[in-house]
Amino acid sequence: MNLERITMDYLVRIEGATFGYDASPVLEDVTLAVGPRAFIGVVGPSGSGKTSLLRLLIGTAVPQRGTVTRRPDVAVAYVPQLETVNWNFPVTVAECVLMARTGRTLPWPTRHERAEVSRVLDRLGIGALAERHIRELSGGQQQRMFIARALLRRPQLLLMDEPTTGVDITSRHDMLHLLGELNAEGVAILLTTHDLNGVAAHLPQLVALNRTVLAVGSARDVINGPVLERTFGAPMEVLEHLGMPVVLDRYDTADHRASA
């Protein structure tokens, strides 16, 4: 991917950013731009700075060095990790989605807002669950509820933190289809993921991150042995199946054979 090219037309751009919660930086000299209609997956191990990168992009974290520039008129929506949510919080699905409504301060929603929520929930296939408590949903349904809340803001840029963690294969497929549809409609999407085979390999653009950006490009550019070893710190074997890279965990396999 040509970084220079995409930085000319961007929704949000990070340049030379260094960020940390304490003395040691979590991110160092990161440069990245998200353009209109982009569909980017950020891959990296736990603690590689994926969530911090999202916080820089949404503006809840400010870099100690470098800059983050957002186009002034861009509408950003953020879908958090499911594990960070208190699922015992007393809200129904409809109440949760309605949190995203803007421009009105009174407690109750208008008829138009209620219709909008129903439309979005129906589109995501959870319209019948509107009055359910949020804990009564499956992982995939909880994720779709948060996407519904994000869509209510009519975002140009949707940022998602590990959207497929804790969901089954069918829900993961449905999620990728849905995100593909949204992207085709013009919503730029950037998501983080651990799932190289199930998610990352299907995305048009990938970023390999471990404290800094190690590689940027297509699935073939990023999901290959040398880049993955630098990113995850362990050798990984990559095969090709139906034109897509498939990652094998070589270290575990060898370890298993040795102990057998």
């Binding site: 503006g59 929506a77 949760c96 949190m99 995203a100 809340r149």
Partner: peptide, 22 residues
């Protein structure tokens, strides 16, 4: 509470997403 219903609820449930959402 009446005039800040959405803000108070959103900031209580998920302050980070609330911040991003205005």
């Amino acid at each position: 509470i009446f005039l800040n219903y959405r803000a108070l609820l959103f900031a209580t449930f998920d302050p980070e997403v609330a911040d991003v959402s205005g």
